[in-house]
Design a protein around this nucleic acid. Sequence first.
DNA 1: CTGAAAGCGCTAACAG
DNA 2: CTGTTAGCGCTTTCAG
Lengths: 353, 353
Amino acid sequence: MFKGSIVLKQRVTRNDVAKYAGVSTAVVSYVMNNGPQPVSEKTRLRVLTAVNDLGYRTNQIARSLRMQRTRTLGVLISNSINPYFAEIVNAIETYAFNLDYSILVGNTNNNLERQQTYLDSFISRKVDGMIFVSTTLPSEAITLINEFHIPALYIGSEGDIESEVQNLIYSILFKGIEGGYMVGRHLLERGHKRMACIIGARQDYPYVSMRWLRLKGFSRALSEESLSPVVIRQGETFFDGYQAARALLEKDEPPTAIFTGNDLLAIGVLSAAADLKLKVPDQLAVCGFDDIEAASYVNPRLTTIRIPKRELAENAVQTLIDHIGCHPQGGELTALSTKIHYLETQLVVREST
Amino acid sequence: MFKGSIVLKQRVTRNDVAKYAGVSTAVVSYVMNNGPQPVSEKTRLRVLTAVNDLGYRTNQIARSLRMQRTRTLGVLISNSINPYFAEIVNAIETYAFNLDYSILVGNTNNNLERQQTYLDSFISRKVDGMIFVSTTLPSEAITLINEFHIPALYIGSEGDIESEVQNLIYSILFKGIEGGYMVGRHLLERGHKRMACIIGARQDYPYVSMRWLRLKGFSRALSEESLSPVVIRQGETFFDGYQAARALLEKDEPPTAIFTGNDLLAIGVLSAAADLKLKVPDQLAVCGFDDIEAASYVNPRLTTIRIPKRELAENAVQTLIDHIGCHPQGGELTALSTKIHYLETQLVVREST
DNA sequence: CTGAAAGCGCTAACAG
DNA sequence: CTGTTAGCGCTTTCAG
């Protein structure tokens, strides 16, 4: 235990550095920030030495207060355990890191109250911008962040947001409905007639309608052949998929193909199929949505729709930061004009269909 | 576009509230914080009305500066896409949320430089505490946070940290070595002789030795029967597991059982086995580590060691916050005494062994 | 019960 | 090129 050797640095501030270096506090600032005033090389070195000797680090809290800018982004997702969100948040974080921004993450667990609490927290903590990833977004929430001039941005699928809310927030959307349509066509081509869809929140969660509307595309494809799917609204976890599939497959006329709202559900379906000794894809075709990493490693490998998660994330962060503006003295955050940017999805055919 | 109807709240501060309510700024504080001075019910109401009318919210940045406390915790993990980390971070976040703390997450990607950058960032941002989850922790890093009096805590496996560093930081550890031993015994009981182990970072990542030492327990078990495993150090992703397993299984005398350092690797192994038409568990037994949710849904279901992730996380947050102290005026953070707390692991036998 | 005022650590305009 | 200083929004001591 050599704890005795640790030098306890009692809150070294910029004042201490100034005193130690024999300069004014302003000069310390000029050196730390490379401006706005020039500093002679000699003084610069003295300051740097002082900084080093004292182990000084800028207090970002004080700096944020002064600058009216925190270099922090708030990210709201429903659940970081779901790889769809984990992968997007990871991409956001990585991209933001390179631009020297930090990320505050909030899991709403599809709970509107909890989401509101995070919203309030983000506002109080003065995040420079906010990203909502596939969360239910009541118009009051958007109004709120607009009131506070916080640039905000929605990542999700086309059709996620009701149209009257859609034009209130800048969005980067993947073509989820089209993705659903591609799945429908694909399954049709494989000769399937009786198809089911496990998608969307349970009926008793009225507000959480995310990932629901992409069913539209699927249904449209089927309707072109005068078919229509059985739909189960069940949730979004492995277990939800497992449970729904059991119910579906133990019926009299079970579907020959199941399309799910995300890959977790699909993997749950695969698990149910295995338990029921159903051969996939021969006796049952399964198609997911998201293309999480695990989709390529389950047995059989999962056919799914690839969402361009990285592009979504990077696009979002870049757009947000572009709009944060870089007025030195803080200045107004420039409101994000309400636009929509679309990214393509892609059908990835693997072994499960 | 009814943007015109949005009231633009130009930074409402406590001063505005005070003026509007016709009281001093101090009183506004007393009301907002329920203290430290009492306020008459009448004034209280006036202030509350003002707050409501103006849409005032406390500026946490200013508050943090004044209080020398940010109600923010920094969490360092290697990669949030790995469900092991995702589940732990999620539990940390949930628990912290209820205590009104926010979480700043940094993915180190097993990169020491990046970890250091995050460390610096957390220090500058004045987090009230830090949690390291299974990250490589050089003693200089610990010395640094000790110098700044930041309560910090390590979550991981026994054996993760070299012993000379171990007594520098408070740790909450699961019994990973014992877990490895249980796996060894289990596989031995199943009659396996030729066993392999895919664990630990690639050889060319000298610093990232996490998840490596739990092999000790496995080897010990085998050595009791005068056996020893083939060891491949390969990484920690699905693909690493897949690749390592292919290499292992296409040899002349392939192992009959493979133990991996985490569940991702194990799922990769399962995938390789399927490609090679190897029946699991008949021709090959596979055992993972972590018990991520997916382990129960892959085909076949994965035998693994359960790490008490939630307990680890909650224990960590509680311990940290207990030590942050609640001196109103800020006050010293009380250093965490260097202790170790152990949590049990558990063998979960499913279909893959 | 209420108010005045000091000060947390920093930036940047402005004066020299 | 360097220094002085106002002020970001808040909490809390202390005096009334």
